[in-house]
């Protein structure tokens, strides 16, 4: 029995810098796994490799029996992997509704000719995907903003919209890159509930990067710790917390109220 998702000995480097090496990860369908590590450990790089933004230099990544390395991001997205970004990357000048509708791109069942002439399946399909997008917005309590431009939303709602957009692709594996960045403790509490809820609602498997240990210990079933591109520990959250190597890696880093993000390096 092949695992549902498997990264095998994955490595990647930028120039001389080895951003990730010997990375292994198996996910069972429905799991919620955390990926932690100090700044620059290579966490976001893992996401970029899985989603095809970068092409892995070594190793293989298999998802539902298909090899992902070498596929383009849009194909990988179509296979059911979606993500959010460390620094929000919604379509700022588009409406909230359009942000979500674009996520239906691969599942829009009308031809270019029908789109140009607004004939045939266009009306039915457009109505369907508008309804589906509105449904997602409703579930995320964003429907009253449907016609606003996305960048007019407050920060927290932009994050939520980004997650909503990822959900709308119909993904079964969701990658969240520091979803709690910049949130206060009560917002983090809400976010934890929210993640648990969408996981059940959309039947998701979730891999999440986070610096806020409270969130990681609160909802993750399993945690992987990266440091300098190498996996230094793996296990249950409470085991990880007492692992000397992990403490070592985090030593010297700011004691974790969580503001280890926003280092400005990401663009």
């Amino acid at each position: 029995m092949k695992p549902w998702f498997q990264a095998n000995n994955v490595g990647h480097h930028f120039g001389g810098l080895s951003a990730i090496s010997g990375f292994n990860l198996e996910l069972r369908s429905g799991e919620l796994v955390g990926l932690i590590g100090p700044n620059g450990a290579g966490k976001t790089t893992v996401f970029n490799l899985i989603t095809g933004v970068y092409r892995a230099a070594e190793g293989s990544i298999r998802f539902q029996g298909r090899e992902l390395t070498g596929l383009t991001p849009w194909i990988i997205s179509g296979l059911g992997i979606a993500r959010t970004f460390q620094n929000i990357r919604i379509f700022k000048q588009l409406s909230v509704l359009d942000n979500v509708r674009i996520a239906h791109y691969r599942r829009t069942h009308y031809s270019l000719a029908e789109a140009l002439l607004h004939l045939g399946r266009y009306r039915r399909e457009e109505r369907r995907l508008t309804r589906a997008a509105m449904e997602i917005l409703r579930l995320l309590h964003l429907e009253s903003y449907a016609d606003e431009t996305a960048d007019s939303l407050p920060y927290g709602l932009q994050r939520r919209l980004e997650i909503g957009r990822a959900l709308a692709t119909g993904a079964s594996l969701l990658l969240l890159d520091e979803p709690a960045a910049g949130m206060n403790p009560s917002e983090v509490g809400q976010l934890m509930e929210f993640i648990g809820w969408i996981r059940g609602q959309f039947n998701l498997t979730i891999l999440l990067i986070e610096h806020q240990m409270r969130l990681v210990t609160g909802i993750c079933e399993r945690v992987l710790v990266l440091d300098f591109g190498v996996t230094i520990a793996e296990g249950r959250p409470n085991e990880i917390q007492n692992n000397p190597q992990v403490l070592e890696a985090y030593l010297g880093q700011a004691e974790d109220g969580g503001q280890m993000t926003d280092d400005g390096r990401q663009t």
Partner: peptide
């Protein structure tokens, strides 16, 4: 980049 990751 985000567009590609949305399947475009």
């Amino acid at each position: 980049v985000a567009a590609e990751l949305m399947g475009v």
